[in-house]
Design a protein around this nucleic acid. Structure first.
Length: 354
DNA sequence: AATTCGGGGCA
DNA sequence: TGCCCAGAATT
């Protein structure tokens, strides 16, 4: 029995019903693939449904503002995906007259579309026999073929791609690609895979050698850096101050409160003595209160943030918040701006409309 | 070749 | 807690 036949047989009797499996429209496939990068299906699904409802065509997406796209993306993470999504929608809509490229080579030129996504779209929509290699594929192939090459090494990436390509069903490339990913996601899971009922049990090198929990091999990630954030929640006459994050870094183009970053956690007295703080509000504040007694710990993949929200009551918004990239807005308009989950949780707890 | 991008879920 | 997830872009 060929590898792809075992895989496809398993898939046809075990696959989930997912909305993007009901179409071959490259716009919807592209949208789903971008959303699912480094994201579990259960997490991405509600966002996909929101997007297809809001943006029926690539032109609808192209005509939206980036702010609206980011707002709908809010909470899904890796926001560069949303910015690239919007950029590519405009490019496809304007330059390509609404028609997506119909092959791997040209798809890969699109911003935000790498090897995996180009392979997925090309095979699903256009039957091009190019193998996908995502986290699921690395896991299935490393186990079945007993390969201990690191999946995030240059050599590993190349070898696994070649192996996947050699295994593809050239007559049914889309089906094969779907099948191997679904098998990895549902059956050959990272932890507690179902080896007992596995169609590859007799030929799986990892199972035979008791190496299931040793594969795949992955080079260890860099350590998480801790940062201390102090957000200034300035309140005056039902207005507040926000700022859009610019440049490269986390949460690019999302909004937040004026931020003072410090080397260590600081007290109220230390904040009042902070040069940046004094430049903003001078000494005309009525009162200042720490919203959260203990810093809120917000963990990202490569960063740990220790966050304090300082609520500052004022008669007037200071002039220094009326220039540069600060924006004075009504509290009731806060909900319109795309913000990180960290900020969103604060807004919900603080109950801004009250 | 290594790092940087989020957030949630799970053992 | 540490690891993983339908990765890609940047350094």
């Amino acid at each position: 029995m060929k590898f792809y036949n075992l895989l496809i047989d398993w898939y046809l009797s075990n696959k989930r019903e997912l909305p993007w499996r009901e179409t071959k429209n490259p716009y919807y496939i592209w949208l789903s693939e971008i959303m699912l990068q480094q994201t579990k299906v259960t997490q991405g699904l509600p966002y996909y449904l929101k997007f297809v409802e809001e943006f029926t065509t690539v032109k609808d997406l192209a005509n939206a503002s980036e702010e609206k796209v980011l707002k709908l993306w809010q909470g899904l993470g890796y926001y560069s995906r949303a910015r690239s999504l919007h950029f590519t929608a405009k490019y496809v809509s304007d330059t390509l007259k609404g028609e997506f490229p119909d092959n791997y080579k040209d798809l890969k030129k699109l911003k935000g579309v790498g090897d995996y996504t180009a392979s997925a779209i090309a095979s699903f929509c256009f039957k091009e026999p190019v193998a996908v290699v995502d986290g699921n594929v690395y896991r299935v192939l490393s186990r079945v073929f007993g390969i201990d090459l690191a999946i995030n090494s240059t050599e590993g990436i190349k070898k696994f791609k070649e192996l996947a390509q050699s295994l593809i069903d050239v007559k049914r490339p889309g089906l094969y690609n779907q099948a191997i990913m679904e098998f990895g996601a549902l059956h050959c899971k990272p932890k507690n895979p179902y080896c007992i009922s596995c169609p590859f049990q007799v030929r799986c090198k990892a199972f035979q050698q008791g190496l299931i929990d040793k594969l795949p091999v992955k080079l260890k990630k860099t350590k998480v850096v801790t940062k201390n954030f102090n957000y200034l929640v300035v309140l005056a006459k039902d207005q507040t101050v926000i700022q859009q994050r610019k440049g490269s870094g986390i949460w690019e183009n999302l909004y937040q409160f004026p931020l003072i970053e410090t080397e260590i956690e600081i007290s109220k007295e230390e904040l009042l003595d902070n040069a940046e703080f004094k430049a903003y509000v001078k000494d005309d504040f009525k009162n200042i209160n720490l919203f959260n007694k203990k810093p809120i710990k917000h963990v990202l993949s490569h960063r740990k943030l220790m966050v304090k929200f300082w609520v500052i009551q004022l008669e007037e918004i200071p002039d220094n918040f009326k220039k540069n990239d600060f924006r004075v807005i009504d509290n009731s308009d806060l909900k319109l701006y795309p913000v990180p989950v960290l900020i969103q949780k604060f807004l919900e707890n603080f109950n801004f409309t009250k």
